[in-house]
């Protein structure tokens, strides 16, 4: 019996679980790379790979945060606006005359602002009890409005160390942003898998009533996931401001979409409780590589956005078909 247990233990931590979407995703990814590379060989050049790696991190980081929210069975579509606010806070606070805040403090303020936005969302969803989509649709508009308000003109940040945060490389080839992404992903993976908080997230999403009966504080768990999502969206904003060395009201416009697509594609079920961050890693690479590939193939920007909508729809179709099949198979 001991033998059986060890085997099944390995089974559970195995990435390639039978009903996981990850293997399919990886195959899709390899095929995709082959196609893009045959259209434009530059696609697999070192420079381009570096640029893909550097650009996917923003959406990757935000997807990690949003994943926690979706796992509880909620949504956060305000992430794009949160990104914008965080970027502008970076630029504005850095430029406050006479204060000369150290850049670390500026970044911290931006991240805290993101967490605060997450807390507002979380409060409205858990305490007031508004549907999370409607809540974040509202805060999406509010914070986009605020972003425009604060950034009536482009705010620049010419400060080498700050720019290094988003544009730096280690070992000449590995973008720093990729390290943030992978670091955060691994950290959150461990949190989700090996901490009480992480398991509570899954339990809340799988069956909120049962979780409540088991003494899990459903509201508190949900609340914190919104904070995580807000903070990661703010990280995205900091990185974007640093990569471009300025901030604008438009930053992050339409990102809610991109991030949601990554999560759905990653197999994070919209019903909550199902999916792992491994899928998010692969989905982030796929989506980043697609937009890069389309750009290299000279597809106009508008089409690229349409493509994203299409991927979102296909992803939710697959999700729905999968859930339906599981339901049928369940005896």
């Amino acid at each position: 019996m001991a033998n059986k247990n060890t085997k099944s233990f390995l089974d559970t931590i195995n990435v390639f679980k039978k009903n996981s979407m990850t293997p399919t995703l990886i195959i899709v990814y390899i095929l995709m790379i082959a196609i893009f590379a045959s259209v434009n060989p530059l696609y697999i050049s070192l420079t381009n790979i570096k640029s893909i790696l550097a650009t996917i991190s923003i959406s990757g980081i935000m997807a990690v945060g949003l994943t926690t929210v979706i796992l509880t069975g909620n949504f956060d579509i305000s992430v794009g606006s949160t990104l914008g606010i965080a970027a502008i806070i970076c630029a504005k606070f850095y430029n406050i005359e006479g204060l000369n805040l150290p850049i670390g403090v500026v970044i911290l303020i931006a991240l805290l602002a993101g967490a605060a936005i997450g807390a507002i969302n979380g409060f409205l969803v858990t305490v007031v009890g508004i549907n999370s989509i409607i809540t974040t649709l509202g805060t999406l508009a509010i914070f986009r409005g605020l972003a425009y308000f604060f950034a009536t003109e482009t705010a620049r940040i010419y400060y080498k160390p700050f720019i290094f945060v988003g544009r730096g490389y280690v070992f000449n080839n590995v973008p720093l942003t990729l390290i943030y992404f992978i670091g955060l992903l691994v950290l959150m993976y461990l949190v989700l898998r090996f901490t009480k908080f992480g398991r509570n997230i899954y339990q809340v999403g799988a069956n909120a009533d049962a979780a409540r009966l088991a003494g899990v504080s459903v509201d508190r768990t949900t609340f914190f996931t919104f904070i995580i999502s807000g903070a990661t969206a703010a990280m995205g904003g900091v990185i974007m401001a640093s990569q471009l060395a300025f901030a604008q009201g438009e930053f992050g416009l339409g990102y809610e979409f991109k991030i949601l697509t990554i999560c759905v594609l990653a197999g994070i079920s919209l019903a909550g409780g199902r999916g792992t961050l491994v899928g998010v890693l692969v989905a982030t690479f796929i989506l980043g590589s697609i937009s890069n590939g389309l750009a290299l193939a000279d597809v106009p920007i508008e089409w690229r956005e349409a493509f994203q909508g299409l991927i979102l729809i296909v992803a939710i179709l697959i999700d729905s078909i999968r859930v339906r099949r599981e339901k049928l198979l369940r005896a």
Binding site: R199, Q203, A206, A210, S269, G273, R274
Partner: peptide
């Protein structure tokens, strides 16, 4: 009152 997508062990030790 089970957590369908989760493991037996987690269901036993829920919360």
């Amino acid at each position: 009152t089970s957590f369908e997508p989760l493991t037996v062990a987690e269901n036993i030790f829920a919360g």
